[in-house]
């Protein structure tokens, strides 16, 4: 099996997400809204984000970086997720953002976006508003299951799988669903994330402007 090509820093904006499927999702969101160019990469599990951020800070091409964003699921404790990401950024000498979704200036500028709950939940919310016909079908299906059997342990995950299965293309994951245009990426549900990514790009524009002056 050929060795996976190793990632280097190629763009001035680096956005670190939780996994390869999230990478596909947010990349597609940026492309659709002409945000960037951003380089997306994923970090290993939640437990050791500090080592991952350190590895990114040292990766070949580190000198190109002007902005670094971290997008993570808030899950049950968004404050803890924010604090661990902020600690990781500070541990390599990068600016420590003071608030969720705000970009701290510097070189690189840094920002953290903690998604309420998780990406699955955002997608459910967006689809329930903007893909109502399909959403009704999925809701009926899940309610039927829950009434006949038991409450679903992870309803958003079951919801997105059922929703994506409805397109008839087999086992499609959330990020692949975005690439195939199944999710309504124009939904206002993704506004905060879009604004966050746009703010990161402004860091680059400001720094380039400052150099010109």
């Amino acid at each position: 099996m050929p060795e996976r090509k190793r990632v280097e820093i190629t763009e001035p904006i680096l956005v670190i997400v939780e996994g390869p499927d999230e990478k596909r999702f947010y990349e597609t969101l940026c492309t659709k809204h002409n945000i960037g160019p951003c380089q997306f990469a994923w970090a290993s599990g939640k437990d050791d984000i500090r080592s991952s951020i350190r590895a990114f800070s040292l990766a070949p091409g580190w000198e190109k970086l002007r902005a670094v964003g971290i997008i993570r699921d808030g899950d049950d404790d968004p404050a803890r997720e924010f604090a661990s990401a902020a600690d990781a950024l500070a541990s390599v000498g990068w600016p420590r953002p003071s608030e969720n979704m705000l970009v701290a200036p510097g070189r690189p500028g840094t920002g953290i976006a903690i998604v309420p709950g998780n990406l699955d939940r955002l997608c459910v919310e967006a689809a329930e508003e903007d893909c109502q016909a399909r959403a009704l079908c999925v809701n009926s299906y899940l309610e039927c299951l829950e009434s006949a059997f038991a409450e679903l342990a992870n309803r958003p995950k079951s919801w997105v799988h059922a929703f994506l299965a409805g397109f008839g293309k087999g086992d499609v994951r959330v990020g692949e669903g975005a690439q195939r245009g199944y999710w309504p990426l124009d939904s206002h549900v993704f506004d905060d994330i879009r604004r966050f990514l746009t703010e990161l790009t402004k860091q680059v524009e400001q720094q380039v402007g400052a150099q010109v002056i």
Partner: peptide, 11 residues
């Protein structure tokens, strides 16, 4: 190095 290897980052 271990983190970089897990992520697939070039070193």
């Amino acid at each position: 190095l271990e983190a970089a290897s897990d992520i697939g980052l070039e070193v």
